[in-house]
Amino acid sequence: MSGVRPRMTHLFEQLGLDASEAAIQQFIETHQLNAETTIAEAEFWTEAQRQFIVEKMKSDGSWAIVVDQLNESLHEDSVSR
């Protein structure tokens, strides 16, 4: 996938999750995090998923942007309160 800018669907595929638009939206709606919990600390990840997220956040590249977008989406409820 080199040369292709990662998207949310690519991130979900890499995490081994359903990457359909509906599944991504449902995941985000049902996995909201409180303001104190970082995306990497979320209890719903497997260890492999957690490691992938941490690695991509540290890379500070295209993947980090997509992980950050997911992070923001998973904190929508805590921000709107």
Rank of each mutant, 00 (worst) to 15 (best):
A48M: 14
E36V: 05
S62L: 14
F52I: 04
V4D: 09
P6E: 13
A42M: 03
T38G: 07
S59G: 11
S59V: 00
Q32Y: 05
R5T: 09
A64N: 00
Q32D: 08
S20K: 06
T9F: 07
D68P: 10
Q51S: 01
A23M: 05
V66P: 01
I65C: 11
D60T: 12
I39Q: 04
L15D: 02
L33A: 06
T46S: 15
M8A: 05
E55V: 02
F12C: 07
K58Y: 14
T38Q: 02
L70M: 15
Q25D: 15
F12T: 05
K56D: 02
G61L: 01
M8F: 05
T38A: 13
L33R: 02
I65E: 14
W63R: 08
V66Y: 09
A64L: 03
E72Y: 03
V67Q: 10
T38H: 06
A42V: 01
T30R: 12
I65V: 15
K58T: 15
T30P: 01
S62R: 15
Q69H: 04
L17N: 06
V67C: 00
T30Y: 05
Q51W: 04
E47D: 10
F44W: 04
Q25S: 15
Q32C: 11
T46F: 11
M57N: 02
E21M: 07
S59Q: 15
T37S: 04
V54I: 00
K58I: 14
R5H: 07
D60F: 15
Q69Y: 06
V67N: 04
E41M: 04
Q69F: 02
F12S: 06
Q49P: 03
M57Q: 01
L17I: 03
H31G: 07
S62C: 08
T9P: 07
F44A: 11
R50C: 08
A40P: 00
A48S: 13
N71F: 04
I24Y: 07
E29M: 10
N34V: 05
L70Q: 05
E41C: 10
A64E: 11
Q26F: 07
E47V: 06
H31W: 00
A42Q: 04
H31Q: 02
E13K: 15
F52A: 09
D68Q: 12
Q14A: 14
A22G: 02
S59A: 15
A23F: 01
Q69N: 12
V54H: 00
T46E: 04
M8N: 12
Q49S: 03
A23N: 05
A48C: 13
E72K: 09
L70F: 12
D18V: 11
A19S: 14
Q26Y: 04
T38F: 02
F52H: 08
R50E: 08
V66Q: 09
E36C: 03
M57C: 03
F44N: 03
T9V: 14
V66L: 08
A64D: 07
G16K: 03
A40D: 02
Q49I: 05
I39G: 00
D18F: 09
V66I: 10
D68M: 04
E29K: 09
D60K: 15
E55H: 11
E72Q: 05
V4R: 12
Q32T: 11
K58F: 14
T38C: 07
V66N: 03
